[in-house]
Design a protein around this nucleic acid. Structure first.
Lengths: 227, 227
DNA sequence: TTACACGCCGTACTATAGTACGGAGTCAAG
DNA sequence: CTTGACTCCGTACTATAGTACGGCGTGTAA
């Protein structure tokens, strides 16, 4: 197999193979002494494929080099390879958590940017630049904690919303309310000009909903609550 | 706050701050007209921290620039900012999907790796070198192709495996066999010391299974096939 | 047999994301 | 008022992961 065939088979460019050879990731086949072109074995293709896939899951060429070195080492232990993979996985997991935080921040930003009204403080910075992740509160010793899984009495409140001019506005308000802590259900109707929120009164406050809606440029009028 | 204090607070080097300034990611505070050093506000620190965290989760500086642009100019047309934010959110979602894929791939590798023992049995290296998902076969034009969706006569073969000493060994063999092209089903029982493989005889060969199992350090004895 | 596509090889270039360095200016403590 | 730490600024260098280019040699097919 010529280099271009091998490149094709492995799904990379010819130059990339040469680059890997230079980097020592794959060994260059010898040129036949009677002249002619180097011949690439399908093993080389497998190796290149390995490199690419390992890269895709986040390994750098240096790390891949180490992995490949382990493979070549007859007394290497499989546990080592496994350990590398675990480290990578942890890294990936951390990244996913961060990205989710960012996604939420963007959701919030999108929600608070209704297409009209002041865009107040943007929340992307808050979303990520959170060295203060309040979640990291000290873990109290289970034996001492009194707080049993409390039965929450959920509450519903309905607002009449003024200022919505399309379905998008309703979406905005929906998204906005959903980001409030303690809120478990939201139903906003553009047609009926209503927003209904199901929430835990021990966590969320009605006033916060009104504030949030007002900040987005709408007016929320609390309805007398039936019941 | 001087630049070195800001750098310290943000956890980067002084040169990095200057680099971000040059790149336009953060604006350089003005030098006091009466001479002296520039003064950095804690907002700048927050911004730098944001940049770092966004980078960590896979955003390039260019992308971060765009993210930060969302936060800046509050007088920008809100609809535009919203649109940008939505694009960014989609990007974030794509990143999450990609990372989850990586995580799953790593999980698979970790799960099937016996965790100790000779590398011959390490399925990570095998798993990564596997000719990725043959799904990318060229789509032949339906009208011209003669090859109707051939009815494959699948075949089953059962081996008696010697040398398995725990369930993990069974997993290893399972994973190993699953990577073989043409294999559509694998059932390995540690208790019964058996491996059953469902495969397409036009693609896979029984000998290849035995080889692979042997390479992993087990012995596979073909059983007489009950038709 | 001759064209031309490919192979070989070295060097150079790209982008991203910093780091390092050298010289001049500035501040603040001893 | 000197010294040392720090700032400022531009230029240059580093690593990673390739990609491109130019000149030459070679293999194959018309």
């Amino acid at each position: 197999m010529t280099i271009s065939r091998a490149a094709q088979a492995a799904g990379v460019g010819v130059e990339t193979i040469r680059f890997y050879e230079r980097r020592g990731l794959i060994k260059q086949p010898l040129k036949p002494r009677n002249g002619g072109f180097r011949s690439y074995h399908s093993d080389a293709v497998a190796r290149i494929r390995f490199i690419r896939q390992a890269q895709e899951i986040g390994f750098s060429l240096r790390e891949i080099e180490e992995l490949l070195a382990l493979e070549a080492d007859p007394k290497a232990d499989c546990g080592e390879v496994r350990g590398q993979a675990q480290l990578k996985r942890d890294e990936v997991r951390r990244k996913i958590i961060q990205l989710k935080r960012m996604e939420r921040a963007l959701d919030r930003l999108i929600a608070t940017c209704p297409g009209s009204g002041a865009l107040g403080a943007c929340t992307i910075l808050d979303g990520l630049a959170a060295p203060r992740t309040a979640k990291t509160r000290p873990i109290t010793n289970g034996a001492h904690t009194k707080r049993a899984k409390k039965v929450h009495a959920m509450k519903t409140v309905t607002f009449t919303i003024e200022g919505m001019h399309c379905e998008a506005c309703a979406s905005t308000i929906r998204a906005l309310l959903q980001t409030e802590p303690g809120v478990t259900g939201v139903d906003v109707s553009f047609a009926r000009k209503k927003a209904r929120v199901l929430f835990d009164p021990e966590i969320a406050r009605e006033a916060a909903f009104r504030d949030k809606i007002a900040k987005a440029g709408y007016r929320a009028l609390a309805e007398p609550q039936p019941k």
